[in-house]
Simulated scan of single mutants.
Amino acid sequence: MEAEFEEAVEDGKPMMFAIGCLVAAWREIGKHSEGRLILANYALALGLLIPMAALQFEQAVGFLSSAAGPPFGMPGAGAGPNLYLIWSQNSAIPILLITWLLLGMAHLCLAWMLVEGDWPRIVKCGTLIGAAMITMSLFMSVLMLDLLPLRAQVAELAIELAAVVSISRWHIRVFADVSREMLAR
């Protein structure tokens, strides 16, 4: 390949050679189980984990800059803020913001680790995400805040967990086959 590249440089077409190599690699990646796994990892990271991180950041920004009064929703339409809880709810705003930002950053880290295939850290990061979501749900329910924004996030988190588990099983299966092939040689 180096000799072919040297010839392409002599002909003045190194970029065309590189593009040809890239096209050939893209045609071949889907033919191998490792290549399909890599593509699935990237698809999960770019299609689910990064949008979930963006959702977490959007929730934090929306929570902070609510134009319709206090930055938290009260259960029950037309009901005003509970005067007995308003101080506690206002005091909880920084903690909830930090938790939402933590969830966003954890999703970005999870996407990065998934692409790298660092499974021990993926498990730790997934545990952090689950614990933060449970903590936020409990904290918001104790403060009698509206849990409606969390419903969609919990459903998406369940889908995310199922996708990561299926990718991990696929990863185990693919690399078990590769190790058997290596032993046969």
Results as ranks from 00 to 15, higher is better:
residue 43 A to P: 01
residue 46 L to C: 06
residue 47 G to I: 03
residue 49 L to G: 03
residue 50 I to E: 13
residue 52 M to I: 00
residue 54 A to Y: 02
residue 55 L to S: 05
residue 55 L to H: 02
residue 56 Q to R: 05
residue 58 E to R: 09
residue 60 A to H: 03
residue 61 V to A: 13
residue 66 S to R: 10
residue 66 S to T: 09
residue 68 A to H: 14
residue 68 A to L: 09
residue 70 P to I: 07
residue 76 G to S: 10
residue 77 A to M: 15
residue 77 A to C: 07
residue 77 A to D: 12
residue 80 G to R: 14
residue 80 G to N: 04
residue 81 P to L: 03
residue 81 P to Q: 04
residue 87 W to D: 07
residue 88 S to A: 13
residue 90 N to S: 06
residue 95 I to P: 00
residue 95 I to W: 12
residue 96 L to Q: 08
residue 98 I to L: 14
residue 98 I to S: 10
residue 100 W to M: 12
residue 101 L to D: 03
residue 102 L to S: 14
residue 102 L to A: 11
residue 103 L to G: 01
residue 104 G to H: 13
residue 105 M to Y: 11
residue 105 M to I: 12
residue 105 M to H: 02
residue 106 A to Q: 11
residue 106 A to P: 00
residue 106 A to F: 11
residue 108 L to K: 07
residue 111 A to N: 05
residue 112 W to D: 04
residue 113 M to T: 00
residue 116 E to Q: 15
residue 116 E to M: 06
residue 119 W to F: 11
residue 119 W to P: 05
residue 120 P to K: 06
residue 121 R to Y: 03
residue 121 R to E: 04
residue 122 I to M: 13
residue 124 K to G: 02
residue 125 C to M: 11
residue 127 T to D: 05
residue 127 T to Y: 00
residue 128 L to T: 05
residue 129 I to Q: 14
residue 129 I to H: 07
residue 130 G to T: 05
residue 130 G to L: 09
residue 136 M to F: 02
residue 137 S to C: 01
residue 138 L to F: 04
residue 139 F to L: 08
residue 143 L to K: 05
residue 144 M to I: 04
residue 145 L to P: 01
residue 146 D to G: 00
residue 147 L to I: 06
residue 148 L to V: 08
residue 148 L to D: 12
residue 148 L to E: 10
residue 150 L to G: 01
residue 152 A to I: 03
residue 153 Q to P: 00
residue 159 I to H: 14
residue 161 L to P: 02
residue 161 L to C: 06
residue 162 A to E: 13
residue 163 A to E: 09
residue 163 A to W: 00
residue 167 I to A: 11
residue 167 I to P: 09
residue 169 R to L: 14
residue 170 W to M: 13
residue 172 I to H: 14
residue 174 V to I: 13
